[in-house]
Amino acid sequence: MNAIEARDLSKWFGEGETRTNAVQNVAFDAHFQEMLFIVGPSGSGKTTLLSMLSGILRPNQGTVKIKDQDIWSLSADKLADMRLHTVGFVFQDFHLFPKLTTVENVAVPLILKRRKWDEAIKEALQALEKVGIAQRAGLSPQKLSGGEQQRVAIARAIVSQPDILVLDEPTASLDGDTGRKIVEFVKRDILNAQRCIIIVTHDDRISEFADRMIKMEDGRVMEIEKGQGHA
């Protein structure tokens, strides 16, 4: 079973003369225990593709299956549930709540899953230990460095044990060395046999960690190649 199956995926914005094709007829599979990079220049459709894959943006055409389930045939509530239980997100700007502590931020997905507060905090603490910043649990994310905030965002994304982890430009807000360390950490400690990680990036410095790379240009997949990180 593939983690993700994308078939004939297209997305366009506007109609008629103003129509812009963001993604055109994309098809590929993503596997478990695979770190898949989607790369390409700005405006190539990477983020749009990632959004369609993760159940956030409805495609105009084509299907996305996550563990054989056609996600775009689900109702809005079921789709939200699917995202909650199956997909972990690491946003480019992290989007952490500055008025919550670090551990409370990490616990948010568990709270959304209706876990009891104390249990959620306990598990969030374990997730913070996994990403190596448990000692910062009681601080506001505003008091953390960019790299630490990225780790908090990763802890939040993995705390509910998602099958799919998507990272949008994970190194964009970080210096080169920190960015590299983060992706290396994700590959080494977060990727496992039950998980598929998709990273959208245009940072060549981290390409060595990719198991496969989907190269996009003008909304089309130009090439799918094995990355340097492929075992």
Binding site: I56, F91, L96
Partner: peptide, 15 residues
């Protein structure tokens, strides 16, 4: 001020 965070919650699966 919290709009993007509410959006993030929505993305994460909040209804």
């Amino acid at each position: 001020e919290n709009l993007d965070r509410f959006g993030a919650l929505k993305a994460m699966g909040a209804k």
